[in-house]
Simulated scan of single mutants.
Amino acid sequence: MNPYMTYPAKIKKITKHTDIDYTFFIEKIMDVKGGQFIQVSVPKFGEVPISISDYNDELIELTIRKVGRVTDAIFNKNVGDNLHIRGPYGNNFDPEIYFGKDLIMVTGGTGLAPVKSIINYFHKHLDKLNSFKLISGFKSSKDILFKESFEKWEKNMDVCLTIDTPEEGWTGNTGFVTEHVSKLDLSNIDNVGVIMVGPPPMMKFTGMELSKLGIKDEQIWVSFERKMSCGIGKCGHCKIDETYICLEGPVFRYDKTVKLID
């Protein structure tokens, strides 16, 4: 069997979040888990790795940012058209790791997408956690993803949705996620579990703030996606030292990633 073989998946729905961020709901033709990624291709244009933002028995959600040739071609697709996919690849966030813990999730920008399914899982199973705190930051109010989901989450979860700087008409939180992390009041450090996903600088400085609170790197999990191409450890684009991100990740414990020197 050719590992590069793709299979058509019909687009069932498209949701626009911003001018450059859409979620494509495609028919579920494979079993997936939150934190994994799939390769999405458009014939004649190429392929791109996309995180799975959510899924159910019938659909897979792919939140895609329009940033280049392949994603431009994807954005030209309509409901009823096919996207060609292969995978899934990589490991996943395991919800059971956090059972009984005080879970803190920190996301920056589109870093919310790879963990949306995990948030939705715990939204339905809050009884499996001791507590839950979501801190999610965006550059501006125009850049916020999944607004309807935030409205749902805020009904029974502790959510801090923040934008970088104040703007007219915005009545919510402002400031970088690191500012809100530094304000966390944690009573039992040893029972804390953290998931953080976002741009590398955001994760670096968030990790520093968490360390100041007494949280160890071993208590933190991240999604560390970078330059992935083939998805099966053959091309070497994602390799750092001896680690293939597509095979051993993209989900890592933080004490592993801080040792990966690019």
Score class of each variant (00 low, 15 high):
residue 17 H to L: 08
residue 257 T to W: 04
residue 208 M to N: 05
residue 37 F to G: 00
residue 183 K to E: 14
residue 108 G to Y: 04
residue 117 S to C: 06
residue 150 F to I: 02
residue 123 H to A: 09
residue 89 Y to N: 02
residue 89 Y to G: 07
residue 188 N to C: 11
residue 72 D to R: 10
residue 207 G to T: 00
residue 177 V to H: 01
residue 48 V to D: 01
residue 130 N to H: 15
residue 163 I to S: 02
residue 226 R to S: 12
residue 197 V to H: 06
residue 94 D to E: 15
residue 41 S to T: 13
residue 239 K to V: 14
residue 9 A to T: 08
residue 195 I to V: 09
residue 262 D to C: 03
residue 13 K to G: 09
residue 129 L to D: 03
residue 145 L to D: 07
residue 3 P to W: 12
residue 214 G to Y: 06
residue 9 A to N: 02
residue 113 A to I: 11
residue 131 S to W: 04
residue 138 F to M: 05
residue 55 Y to N: 06
residue 152 K to R: 13
residue 5 M to D: 09
residue 91 N to M: 10
residue 138 F to R: 00
residue 240 I to R: 08
residue 63 T to Y: 01
residue 242 E to R: 12
residue 221 W to D: 05
residue 100 G to K: 11
residue 27 E to M: 09
residue 255 D to C: 07
residue 184 L to A: 00
residue 195 I to S: 00
residue 62 L to A: 06
residue 119 I to E: 01
residue 191 N to E: 15
residue 4 Y to D: 13
residue 113 A to F: 07
residue 104 I to P: 13
residue 49 P to W: 05
residue 246 C to L: 02
residue 241 D to R: 01
residue 193 G to V: 04
residue 95 P to N: 11
residue 157 M to W: 00
residue 125 H to L: 08
residue 27 E to F: 05
residue 147 K to Y: 06
residue 38 I to M: 07
residue 197 V to C: 11
residue 117 S to K: 09
residue 218 E to V: 14
residue 126 L to P: 04
